[in-house]
Amino acid sequence: MTPNLMWLAWASVPLYLTGLYKRFFLFAGCLAQAAYLVARGMRLGRVPLVGPHDTLILLAASLAGFSFLFHAAQERGKRSFRILIGAMAALFTLFAMLARPFEGVLPPVLSTYWFELHVGLSFFSYAFFGIGAVLGVIYLGQREAALEKSQYRFILSGYLLFSIAMIAGGVWAYLAWGSYWLWTPKELWTSILWLYYSLYLHLRLRPSWHGKNTAYAGVIGFVLVLFTYLGVGLLMKSSHTF
């Protein structure tokens, strides 16, 4: 029997907060959460991707983990970046710890790789969009062109992952319910999010919109991500309430 390593998830909160001062601790927090998710997955015998507890931990760990792509590539804006990423990861982890972990047996319809791919890639893409938003905020303060370019790259990569996540969701829905598309508010909001980032990518093709406008657009995008993830689930009925 694999032990319940909940303390690892708790430990990641102070690690992320210490990461505001030293990058190493941000990395340590990410590792602690990864270890927690692996241990939890081994204990449950499945990938832990059900409910706000699992998905918020995954989002926090992905934010911290993928942020190292920026750390490795850029010189400017690193301190503000580390502070904002650390604060966001700590906040998401705290919210995750408030939610009760889902320990039950999964309904048979959720026992498929398509579900795991759909949820996993969705949260990886949310993390990329979140990093894009953080870079947008820093750009608005520092006006370094390289930051806005990095924001664009993170958002473009997030867009790719999000598109694949939607496709995986469509294949799964087709195999499970006979339709690759269901008309529910959650699906509509997913389309809104996808259209919004398509709009962002088109806006950025216009030279007059480069800089401040696209930076703001990237920040607003993450607000939409959070509403699609948390707001729609809380306020509207959909097929995504497991």
Partner: peptide
């Protein structure tokens, strides 16, 4: 024009957003 594409996408977002509340 990309300007038209941006406007159309913006309006499409507004239509779907309205739709999500209508559905609810």
């Amino acid at each position: 024009s990309q300007r038209l594409a941006v406007w159309l996408m913006g309006l499409e977002i507004a239509a779907l957003l309205t739709g999500s509340f209508f559905m609810e």
